[in-house]
């Protein structure tokens, strides 16, 4: 049994402090320690993207990162992006444009898409495909996922223009 480490995280705006073994994976910290179950466990080998979260401004697959590696970081999960009464434009778009079926990939998919649109607010379809390549969906065939991201980008850009 290895010595536990003192870890501090800020998750969805809330400070969390705990002792954890160095081998504790971040997805377990989120799901089992903090009861944040939006990020899902799909493959546990960083291929499917169901566990995608944002850490200090970058998309990260939380199934292959140790909690200890995230010490001191700001983490945003799907729960920090919006809630059923106050949806983010991407969440609205995935709902309205049918960008989901079973929904298991959806939290990771939307979390990744928020970063994609921050990195590139006006992506081409090709750029969306490339930018979303690390998130697998087995149900939709991706058509409506791409439509959802395009619709959200248009909505967000229109809102930005209106504000300027």
């Amino acid at each position: 049994m290895s010595k536990k480490m003192h870890i501090k995280l800020n998750v969805n705006g809330k400070d969390e402090e705990f002792l954890a073994e160095p081998r504790e994976l971040l997805i377990y910290t989120l799901r089992e320690r903090l009861n944040i179950t939006g990020p899902h466990i799909g493959c546990e080998t960083s291929h499917c993207g169901a566990c995608t979260v944002t850490i200090d401004g970058k998309s990260v697959k939380s199934c292959t990162m140790f909690a200890a590696q995230a010490d001191g970081a700001e983490i945003t999960t799907i729960e920090g992006i919006g809630n059923p009464d106050d949806l983010h434009p991407l969440q609205t778009a995935f709902k309205e444009h049918h960008g989901l079926q079973c929904g298991y990939c959806t939290p990771g998919m939307i979390t990744r898409a928020t970063k994609l649109l921050e990195e590139n607010p006006t992506p081409t379809e090709e750029e969306i495909r490339f930018g979303m390549a690390g998130n697998i969906c087995r149900c939709t065939g991706y058509q409506n996922i791409i439509k959802s991201i395009q619709a959200a980008a248009a909505e967000m850009n229109a809102a930005k223009e209106a504000a300027e």
Partner: peptide, 22 residues
């Protein structure tokens, strides 16, 4: 119409077996 649980799926609030508090 959208999927009945779409608003839950997009917010991570839809529960699968592994999400149910034990």
């Amino acid at each position: 119409l959208p999927h009945d649980a779409a608003h839950l799926h997009v917010t991570g609030a839809a529960r699968y077996v592994d999400d149910i508090p034990t």
